[in-house]
């Protein structure tokens, strides 16, 4: 009880703010506002552990608020709490907001408190050590050239795999797996920095595999490429899979290149200070494990053993 984090709530409905303030009474110091600009100002001036933002607001949308928060105070954890999720907002929340959780109204009180308090704990350890350099305004153009990284493309068709091969400098090893089993073998034997996962409508096992993987290897960053405009699935990939970026298929070359560059850079940061990997911690998955076949489970066991040894 001694740790009282600071959380900021922003919503254009004051009754939501009153209700949430009450929910966090005694658990956190709560600052509330209906204006996104206030939030950006506050996180610049004081230590804020978590920002919980509504999406649809006049003046600034939630994603705009969270993007600014990430720029001004990268250690602050970001959560979106919204009443209606259109696909554009969901995608932007991943790619621009880099959010910890995407939560929907009406919310479950216990779960909301649990998510916010966990985020606050994680933020506390990042805030202690000023390890995250503020994200550069423009993503770095050059891809890292040291041979530290290994990229894995999970692509049954091969189109995206070819694109990744063209984009990546030779110093980065790119392996391609047309199906999930091969991808897992690759993951067991190599320290993979970034996975580009191409998902089709039959990609249930890929989705589950990503969720499992992030539990064991939070430092491996996932770029999901999907032709499915399914907001529910994407939200579950955020919360339970902590995907780093979400791209609609087919991805543009330049966009994919920028995502890969950011992912490799983030991975390098995570290797330097493993505690930061907590920031990509996933929510307990609701659906997985049941659908994973015996063979996959076996690979997971090997992965898990590898992870505990490391």
């Amino acid at each position: 009880m001694s740790f009282l984090p600071t959380i900021v709530l922003v919503d254009d409905e004051e009754r939501i703010l009153r209700s949430l303030r009450m929910l966090f009474r005694g658990r956190a110091e709560v600052l509330c506002t209906t204006r996104g600009a206030d939030v950006v100002e506050w996180v610049g001036k004081r230590k804020v552990h978590v920002v919980v933002s509504d999406q649809r607001m006049p003046e600034m949308t939630g994603i705009e608020v969270l993007r600014e928060v990430a720029r001004v105070s990268p250690a602050t954890m970001r959560i979106l709490l919204t009443g209606y999720a259109d696909m554009d907002a969901v995608i932007a929340s991943v790619n621009e907001g880099e959010i910890f959780r995407f939560l929907e109204k009406p919310w479950n009180g216990e779960k909301l408190v649990a998510a916010v308090m966990r985020a606050a704990e994680i933020a506390a350890s990042s805030l202690e050590r000023p390890l995250i350099a503020p994200a550069p305004a423009a993503p770095p153009i050059a891809l890292p050239s040291r041979k530290v990284a290994h990229a894995l493309v999970l692509d049954a068709q091969g189109g995206v795999a070819n694109l990744v091969r063209q984009i990546m400098p030779e110093s980065i090893r790119v392996s391609v797996a047309p199906e999930i089993g091969m991808a897992l073998d690759e993951l067991v034997t190599h320290d993979v920095a970034v996975i580009v996962a191409v998902m089709s409508s039959e990609a249930g096992d890929i989705v589950d595999a990503i969720k499992q993987l992030k539990k064991l290897r939070p430092a491996t960053l996932v770029i999901a490429v999907s032709s499915m405009q399914d907001s529910r699935l994407t939200i579950s990939l955020i919360n339970e899979g902590q995907i780093f970026r979400f791209l609609l298929a087919p991805p543009g070359r330049e966009l994919l290149r920028r995502c890969l560059a950011s992912a490799l850079e983030r991975h390098a940061q995570l290797r330097l200070s493993p505690v930061l990997a907590e920031r990509h911690e996933v929510e307990e998955s609701r659906s997985s494990q049941v659908t994973l076949s015996g063979r996959l489970l076996d690979v997971w066991r090997r992965l898990r053993e590898g992870a505990t040894r490391a």
């Binding site: 409905e13 009754r15 939501i16 209700s19 949430l20 649809r56 919204t82 009443g83 109204k105």
Partner: peptide, 12 residues
């Protein structure tokens, strides 16, 4: 969206 907003705080 309009319904989920009040529903959110009412439930809470």
């Amino acid at each position: 969206h309009e319904i989920n907003t009040p529903l959110g705080y009412v439930r809470n």
